Computed example of a mutant assay.
Amino acid sequence: MTSSPNTILLAGCGHMGSALLHGWLKSKLPLRLYVLDRHYQPPAGAPVTVWRTLADIPEDFRPDMVVLAVKPKGADAFLEALHERLGRGLSHATLLSVAAGRSCANLAKASGGMAVVRAMPNTPAAIGAGTTGLYSAPDVPPARAALAAQLMKAVGAVVEVPHENDLAAVTAISGSGPAYVFLLAELLEKAGQHLGLNAETAKLLARNTVYGAGEMLHEDPLSAEQLRRNVTSPGGTTEAALKVFMAPDAWPATVERATEAAAHRADELSQ
């Protein structure tokens, strides 16, 4: 038995919105896709209806889910305008927000009372390798919470959290996490050049090492700690480096302080 298609309105098709849409188009999910964006151009033949402005949306349009991918600063104003346009047409819709720093309470108020699911994806979603933290408010129907998870799984892994304030920790670890990894690659490149390698060689070594280690973490069931130990021969080169990285005032303390700072800022932005 084939499921009835869900009607999805994607509001905003920038980097994250377009990544989501690309994932949905590749998936086999039964969806009717509508995009609200001034500039998005769909691929030829793509089963997507594009509207440029709110005024282009038919007043009798009835979405099952509105995916909010606009900039956080404009989220409230957009939702208020959408509610003004569609009114009761949103009464059975669920809001899936990927706008960082906007709480369920704020989003529900701005949208005229929609049930809200908050998602915290990260930038590797652009290549289908994202990680998303997902929180569903208590008034979200289970079927809609499941649909939200399916939509985000189209661009990577999904972790559902039981409390909204858990999203601050998600932001600190996976939401901001790619930047930490990119910084490591950047610093390894610079260190390679400091040790005498040319820039292109240092870049290749650093990037492929990060990529390969990431693949091992993804594919190997061993813990990260055990994988680290497997590389570390007693008295060897890796152990010499790790003694520096793992000094009490080095990585163990720095990573904890850095992620606490990110989580604290995520809490502030959600107020």
Rank of each mutant, 00 (worst) to 15 (best):
H22A: 09
V70R: 03
P47R: 14
R62C: 09
A11T: 10
G23H: 01
P47N: 15
H15D: 03
Q41P: 01
V70N: 04
G23F: 00
V67R: 05
E59K: 14
R38D: 05
A11G: 07
L25G: 01
H22Y: 00
V66W: 05
W51M: 10
A19H: 10
D37V: 06
T53C: 07
G17C: 08
S18H: 00
P43F: 11
G14W: 06
P43A: 15
M16S: 02
P72D: 07
L54C: 07
S18K: 08
G12P: 04
L54A: 08
M16D: 05
P47V: 10
K26D: 14
P30W: 08
C13T: 02
W51C: 09
C13F: 00
A55D: 14
P63T: 11
H39V: 13
M16W: 09
H39Q: 15
A44V: 15
A69E: 06
P30Y: 08
T53P: 00
V67L: 12
D60R: 08
A44R: 14
F61Y: 12
P72G: 07
D64S: 15
R62Y: 04
L20H: 03
H15I: 08
L25N: 02
F61P: 03
S27G: 11
A46V: 07
L21S: 01
H15N: 15
D37P: 05
L68C: 09
L68E: 07
T49M: 08
V48I: 15
D37N: 15
K71G: 08
L29N: 09
H39A: 15
A19V: 14
D37I: 10
A55K: 12
S18D: 04
K71W: 10
P63A: 10
L33C: 10
V70I: 09
A55E: 15
Y34C: 12
F61D: 06
V67I: 15
W51F: 14
K28A: 13
G17R: 05
H15S: 11
Q41M: 12
R52M: 02
P30R: 00
D37T: 05
V50M: 02
W51V: 11
V35W: 06
A19R: 01
H15L: 13
R38M: 09
G12M: 01
V48G: 07
P58L: 14
P30E: 03
L20P: 02
H22W: 00
L25Q: 11
T53L: 00
L36N: 12
K26A: 15
M65R: 08
P42F: 10
E59N: 05
A55S: 14
H15V: 14
H22F: 03
Y34W: 06
L25V: 02
G12S: 04
H39R: 13
R32A: 15
P43D: 12
V35T: 01
D60I: 03
P72E: 04
A19W: 09
K71N: 11
